[in-house]
Design a protein around this nucleic acid. Structure first.
Lengths: 257, 257
DNA sequence: GGAATAGTGTCTATTAGACAATATATA
DNA sequence: TATATATTGTCTAATAGACACTATTCC
C-alpha cells in the first residue's frame, strides 16, 4: 500500500527533500571526463561536487535532470521520447541515493542521472557563473589528496564519488551491448573516432582492424554518410552517423577476460 | 549545488513523500510470478498493487525495502553486504518513479526495488492479514480486463504495471550475464531445475543438453555438493549450490536473435 | 620516401547450436 | 517393458583475436 489513509495527512509520512544529481560524461583528449562544479557554501565548501539541484514541486524527475543539465552545460537532453533541437546528449536515470546521513543538514534523497555528451565545441554555453570544469574521472575518483593539479585533488563532496563511480561503471557496461558510445561522438564521426571513445571509456587499447570489422558488420550500428574526412591525418576515413539500432547484437566485447 | 543556503530552511525545497515499492519475483509451476497485494482503500480500492510503503525518517532506502519484504513475505533480504539467517532472497534497487501525477493525493516519489526469491515452501510467513498472492506476471500485465480469473483481471494500481514491467525486464536481462538465476532456486538444486528457471523467466524452451554443458562449464557458476536427487523423475540428477561467481563470462545467451 | 591512419584479407582457436547416444531412475 | 530425465559426445557454422597486407593522405 502507498498510504494508510485516503485523506492527505501530512503527519502520516516523514518529509524528504528530493534532488537530482548529474554524472555528465564526455571524452576529451582521449580521456573519460566528468563535469564537476565547485561548492560555494558549506558543507564541503570549496570542494568539487556533481552538478544537481532540487526537484520542483510539479516537475518530473527526468525533466528536473534535463533542466539542470541545460542550466549547467547548455546541452539539450535527448531522451527516448524527445528529439534534440540543438546539441543532443543521452540522458537516463542512474540510481537513487538516500542514506539518512548523506547530507548533514537534512534528509535528502537524490535521484542520480547519467548523461553522455559529445566533446563540446564551446563548453558550458549557458552555465551559471560559478566554477565548473571537466576533469578526468580518474582524477576525481583518486583517494589520496596528493596535490597534483592542486584544486582537484580533494575528494568529491557528499557521496558523489560513489555516484560518479556507479555512473562510470554504467557507461562502461552500456557501451558493450548498446550503441550508446555514439552519444560521445559528434553527429558525423569516423570508425577511428568511435574506437577512441571505446578506448577512453574502457581504458584499454583495441585493435583498429578488428574493431573496424566488428562495428561496420554489426547491423544498425553505423550508417555511412558518403562523406570522408582527414581530421586525424593519414588516409581519409569514411564518415558515419549512428544507425537506428539501440541494442547491439552481438555485443562489443570488452578485453581482459 | 545541493542547496542554496547552509542554514536549514524548510521553505527552500518542496516536500516529498518517499516510498519503496517491491517487485518480488519467483518461479512457481514453471511460470514467472510476482507478489501482488489488494488495496483496501481508495484510490484504486480493490485493485491489485505492488507491496510497498513509506520510508521512515531515519531509514536507508535499502533497509526500508528489506523491512517491507520481511513484513509482506517473511523473506530475509540478501544484499551484497549481508548474509541471510533464514531464507535468502536477492534484493537490489530497480529504479525511481516520480511523475507528479502518479499518486492523485500528493507528491510521492517511489524507489522501486527488485527481489528475486525461491519458491516458498510456506508463502508469506509473517505477512499482514490483508490479501496478498502470487500471480503470473503475464496475468498482472494484461491490458484487457476480460474476467478470466475474476479478481486478477483489472490492471494494477498507480503506475505499478510499468514498474512491474521494468522489473521483469531487468530480471530477464540480469540472468544473462550474472548468476542471479540461482536466487530463484533453493539452496541446493539440479541443472534441470535451473534450466526451468531460465525457461520460465525468458518464456522460451532451451535445449537441456547444451544448457547442461554451458552452465557446468562456466567457471564459478555451480558447485557440486556431491548429493543427487530424483525429485523430477527419471535418472537422478546431481545437486549443486551457487558458486562464488556473480558475473558470468561468457554470458548465457537468450535465444531468438 | 617515411610516417600515420584507414581498410581488407586470412588464419586459428573457441563456441553456440543441432542432435545422436548412453545412463538411470519410475510406472 | 516403456517413459522420463540426466549426461556425455560429436559435428558444423559463426566468430573473436592475431596479424599480414594494401590504400591514401601529409610531411
Amino acid at each position: 500500500m502507498i498510504t494508510p489513509m485516503p485523506p492527505y495527512d501530512p503527519s502520516a509520512f516523514p518529509p524528504f527533500a528530493v534532488t537530482v544529481d548529474l554524472v555528465v560524461l564526455t571524452v576529451r583528449r582521449h580521456a573519460l571526463c566528468a563535469l564537476a562544479v565547485r561548492r560555494g557554501e558549506p558543507p564541503f565548501q570549496g570542494r568539487w561536487a556533481l552538478p544537481g539541484g532540487f526537484v520542483r514541486a510539479d516537475e518530473d524527475l527526468e525533466a528536473a535532470a534535463a533542466r539542470e543539465l541545460t542550466e549547467e552545460t547548455g546541452l539539450q537532453a535527448q531522451t527516448p521520447a524527445g528529439a534534440s533541437p540543438i546539441y543532443g546528449a543521452h540522458l537516463e536515470q542512474l540510481a537513487t541515493y538516500g542514506d539518512p546521513k548523506r547530507d548533514p543538514r537534512m534528509r535528502v534523497v537524490s535521484v542520480a542521472h547519467l548523461v553522455l555528451a559529445p566533446d563540446l565545441p564551446a563548453p558550458r554555453a549557458g552555465g551559471d557563473a560559478h566554477s565548473a570544469r571537466w576533469a578526468p574521472v580518474e582524477t576525481l575518483l583518486e583517494q589520496d589528496d596528493t596535490t597534483r593539479e592542486g584544486e582537484l585533488a580533494a575528494p568529491l563532496a557528499f557521496d558523489h564519488a560513489r555516484i560518479l563511480g556507479d555512473g562510470v561503471e554504467r557507461a562502461r557496461s552500456k557501451i558493450e551491448y548498446s550503441s550508446l558510445a555514439t552519444a560521445f561522438c559528434p553527429p558525423e564521426f569516423t570508425v577511428g573516432e568511435l574506437r577512441r571513445v571505446y578506448e577512453a571509456v574502457w581504458g584499454v587499447a583495441l585493435d583498429p582492424r578488428n574493431f573496424h570489422r566488428k562495428v561496420t558488420g554489426t547491423p544498425g550500428f553505423l550508417v555511412p554518410t558518403g562523406g570522408t574526412t582527414t581530421r586525424q591525418g593519414g588516409r581519409p576515413a569514411q564518415l558515419f552517423r549512428a544507425g537506428g539500432a539501440t541494442l547491439l547484437n552481438p555485443p562489443m566485447l570488452r578485453p581482459e577476460v
